[in-house]
Amino acid sequence: MEYTKLGSTGVDVSEICLGTWRFGMESEGVLETDRETAHALLDRFAEAGGNFIDTANAYGDGDSERWIGEWLTERDREDYVIASKVYWAEESRFDQNLSRKNIRAEIEGTLDRLNTDYLDLYYIHRWDDDTPIEETLRTLTRLVKEGKVHYLGASTMAAWKLTKALWTADAEGLESFTVTQPQHNAVYRDEVADYLDVCADQDLAVCPYSPLEAGFLTGKYERDGDIPEGSRGDIGTWFDPESYTDRQWATLEAVQAVAAEADATPAQVAIRWLIERDRFTCVPIIGARTVDQLEENLGAADLSLSDAQTERITDAYRE
């Protein structure tokens, strides 16, 4: 596993981040990842050299943080970069809220579940339209000064809101966001283009979630085929083949063609395409329900794509 600087933070992280949103989560009554499997996934990720782990207070009703915390007790905390999030509530009844009161309650719950004194990275999970961003940033700044948080991040939001937050931090002398977590992958670009322009201009690291478009980029789905049993599309409600455009299917075909040339899987190629984005530091967040799935995704770290192959995937979407 290679390591990269996380944007302007100076922190060295593995070029792939392990996402744990499936830990303790149920989809259509199916538990996606239980405690034993969660620990096995963390073990394998660490064995591969991974040190960057992403969670949130609301994942699995707090079980994601709890299970990571249990796992960390047997390891050196300083070896890992742990990121969590605030917006939805586990400790407070003030859900979808970034007020001082809610952030204070949620950070204490997160630290307790993770069994740690600090977070390396703390994201706002969404934007709170009812709380002034200055109040949110002042509260987060205080957490940094207290040593409970090292760096601040922002997840999904409109580009103008991210810009407003960066401007407010600069104007008021507050801690600013240095890392972002938007949805982004080879077939999800236009919707986040303005957001990524801000990241590139302001030297913000990008840690995209859903790098495989919830399985679409693995090639397991066909335009006119049946949804495979046991897949995300089978146990969830998100997948609708008719919702994808011709250029998204064309991009998938380009990913599959490059995979055949590189003796790799489409998933590995799609993840590698993100790692090699050159406008900003890009550290994709991968999720897996089994160790075998994780093993496949980790293969992206050993993959090398030519400039021509990378551009072919990029151009397939544009055309």
Rank of each mutant, 00 (worst) to 15 (best):
A171K: 10
E213D: 11
V192P: 12
D234G: 12
W249F: 03
D234W: 01
I286Q: 06
G173T: 09
T180V: 12
F216D: 00
T168C: 11
G233P: 02
L174W: 07
V258A: 08
T178V: 12
D234C: 12
Y188W: 11
Y221H: 02
E172N: 15
R247V: 09
D201W: 12
D190R: 08
E213V: 04
D278G: 15
I285D: 04
D203Y: 03
D263K: 14
E229W: 00
V192W: 04
R247N: 09
W167F: 08
G173Y: 08
D234Y: 07
E242L: 09
I286R: 07
D203W: 02
C282D: 02
K220L: 03
A270T: 13
D170Q: 14
E191W: 01
D246A: 15
Q181H: 11
P182F: 05
T178F: 05
E172A: 15
S243V: 08
V192K: 12
L252I: 05
T218V: 07
V283I: 15
P284W: 04
E175Y: 07
Y221C: 00
T281K: 11
E276M: 15
A186E: 05
F280A: 09
W249G: 00
R232W: 13
D203R: 06
A267F: 02
Y221N: 00
C282R: 03
L274R: 14
L174D: 05
E222L: 06
A186W: 15
D278I: 05
R272W: 01
A259K: 05
D234Q: 05
G219D: 02
D197S: 13
I275A: 11
D170S: 13
R189L: 08
W167K: 15
L204G: 06
E213F: 07
V283W: 08
Q202L: 14
Y221D: 03
G225Q: 00
I275P: 10
T245I: 00
A250I: 00
Q256V: 03
Y244V: 02
G225P: 06
K220E: 09
T218A: 12
I235A: 11
